[in-house]
C-alpha cells in the first residue's frame, strides 16, 4: 500500500471514529424527540433512519432500556399484526427533559456556529 493511500485510510478511520462519537452523543436526544409519537423498536429505527439518524438494533434497544430505567420513557407490550410488540413513548419526565435538552442542544449549536 502506498504511503498516500495509507495516510488517507488513517484519516478515514479517525474521521469515522470522531463522527460516531459525535452521533452517539446525539442519539438519546434523537430517540426522545422521535418518541413524542409512540413507536415500537423496529418502526422507531426506520423513522430515525429516514431522518438520517440510522441506528443499529444493538445500540437502540439497550438505549431504550436505559432511558426507560431513568423514567424518561414508558413502554407496554401490545399485540399488533398478530405479533407482540413493545411500544415506547415519552413519559411526562421525558417531555420535560427533552425540552431542556433541546435548549441545551440549540445553545451548543449556536456556540459552535460562533466558534466556526
Amino acid at each position: 500500500m502506498s504511503p498516500s493511500i495509507d495516510a488517507h485510510n488513517r484519516n478515514d478511520d479517525r474521521f469515522e471514529n470522531l463522527r460516531q462519537e459525535l452521533r452517539r452523543g446525539s442519539l438519546p436526544l434523537a430517540v426522545l424527540a422521535a418518541l413524542r409519537t409512540e413507536h415500537y423498536g423496529y418502526t422507531l429505527r426506520k423513522t430515525l433512519a429516514d431522518h438520517g439518524m440510522a441506528i443499529d438494533e444493538g445500540t437502540l434497544y439497550p438505549l431504550l432500556r436505559r432511558l426507560e430505567a431513568q423514567g424518561l420513557l414508558a413502554s407496554q407490550w401490545r399485540e399488533e399484526d398478530k405479533r407482540n410488540k413493545r411500544f415506547y413513548r415519552l413519559s411526562p419526565d421525558g417531555k420535560l427533559i427533552l425540552k431542556q435538552l433541546l435548549i441545551e442542544w440549540k445553545s451548543i449549536h449556536t456556540s459552535l456556529e460562533d466558534i466556526f
Binding site: Y40, G41, Y42, R45, E57, Y61, R65, W77, R83, N84, K85, R86
Partner: peptide, 8 residues
C-alpha cells in the same frame, strides 16, 4: 430482551 430483539 429476546422477545424484543426477535421482533426486530
Amino acid at each position: 430482551i429476546i422477545a424484543e430483539l426477535s421482533e426486530d
